[in-house]
Amino acid sequence: MNALDVVLWVVAPYVALTVFVLGHVWRYRYDKFGWTTRSSQMYESRLLRIGSPLFHFGILVVLLGHIGGLVIPKSWTEAAGVSEEAYHVVAVVLGTIAGVATLGGLAILIYRRRTVGPVFTATTRNDKLMYAVLAVTIVLGLAATVMANIVGGGYDYRTTISPWFRSIFYFQPDPALMAGAPLLFQLHALSALLLFAVWPFTRLVHMLTAPVGYLTRPYVVYRSRAEQPTGARAPRRGWEPSR
């Protein structure tokens, strides 16, 4: 274990996660107005209607797959009677389908962003950086899976990468676990850390406010001026509402 490993697999993750958390707090406090999907559907919807669901549903499956692979320890799935082979087959098949859907969707969206005039005009430098980091992360992740399973004989990341991932959250990081992982997995992890670090400052923030509350809230929302001041300033002393 050398200093580089410590920087890459201990320092970098904590820096990225700290930026992720504090960045969101900061953004939420200072830029609620900028917290939006900034949808470009108004300009163009033919390509969007294929690309966007493909990408978003794909990436949701990818997210679930990462939770299953990184957060849930191997011992748990084995205790539940899922053998390593069964897990592996399901993970590779689902992961590849979802990964290809995600990448295909992203390709359509990026193509649309570049070729449709109004959409390209509305693309900021921030968006371009975000697209680059996101695309690199997804390509590397898919490449790592494909290389390990199709070219090689499969790689059991649940004995190395997953424990390392969890070790960060117990505050007992173990860089040695990650140092031995294949290069593509390492690059995928690093690009993901970069993605988390830029996340709060891009339009990706819309993910954290996914509107699941819509399923349970009443249809019409009533709000009172009195309960929730809409005024630009808080009431001064002596001017508070009298009821």
């Binding site: 406010t209 509350g213 809230r217 009533y222 709000r223 009172s224 009195a226």
Partner: peptide
Amino acid sequence: SGAIYKRSE
């Protein structure tokens, strides 16, 4: 998001 509301007053 529940961002559109009807003012009760």
